[in-house]
Design a protein around this nucleic acid. Structure first.
Lengths: 118, 118
DNA sequence: CAGGATCCTTTACGATACTG
DNA sequence: CAGTATCGTAAAGGATCCTG
């Protein structure tokens, strides 16, 4: 990069930064990506199954994150009319647009772990 | 997906979930990805420039996040021997492995914004 | 300029118990 | 089973002032 070339975007990256901010405001935190990752990998999943898959999450936290993801159209919540009622969570079409992002996060996690082990 | 197919990974996704966890443990939060994004977009950048680019960040927070990123080999911190000393932060080679991830985050932020405006 | 010190508010997250 | 209620701790984040 040439010196002062950064002047080219004196206010030039804000939309990109805003986009990053948008994403992270919604998906930052310890569990959200793991939840979505699980739903993508395993398909529709019940509350307790999720709780088991996401080792260590408290039911309150799981419930809260699921609500936020549902509100933001990333997952659906379906009450099944079974004997003891069950509830299934599944990824939406819009949620599927996170496929590539989740992949990158996963890949990078593996990359980074190899790097720091060195 | 076939019924019960999820049995195929009863404990089959943990490494993927662990990878997601690794990534997010390090990079979750409001500012980290924005900081890295800025350094990737703008090249080496001084503390105050970063502060200006990251609209609204408190110096204390910026300082803390920069330290964490440096400790994790994602950025470098270089003190320049100028009249009032200046400090430049830059992305490392390892930090560059975040390129694609940052791109996806940015892209998805744009996608999502369009979606919710509907 | 770079960033530490101080103080404060707000989320995040967790453990456990409990209910329809 | 699927959560909610309650309680508590820790971390995140912010505002402001200060210093070499």
């Amino acid at each position: 990069m040439k010196k002062d070339q950064k002047i080219i975007h004196p206010k030039g990256c804000p939309h990109q930064l805003r986009a990053i901010k948008d994403t992270m405001e919604l998906l930052s935190g310890k569990w959200k990506f793991q939840i979505i990752g699980t739903l993508i990998l395993s398909g529709a999943t019940r509350f307790m199954e999720l709780k088991r898959a996401l080792d260590g999450i408290a039911p309150k936290k799981l419930s809260k994150d699921l609500q936020e993801l549902e509100i933001n159209q990333l997952i659906t919540r379906t009450v099944k009319d079974t004997k003891p009622i069950t509830v299934e969570y599944a990824i939406t079409e819009h949620g599927r647009t996170l496929d590539k992002l989740i992949n990158e996060i996963t890949e990078w996690g593996l990359t980074h772990r190899k790097e720091i082990i060195k």
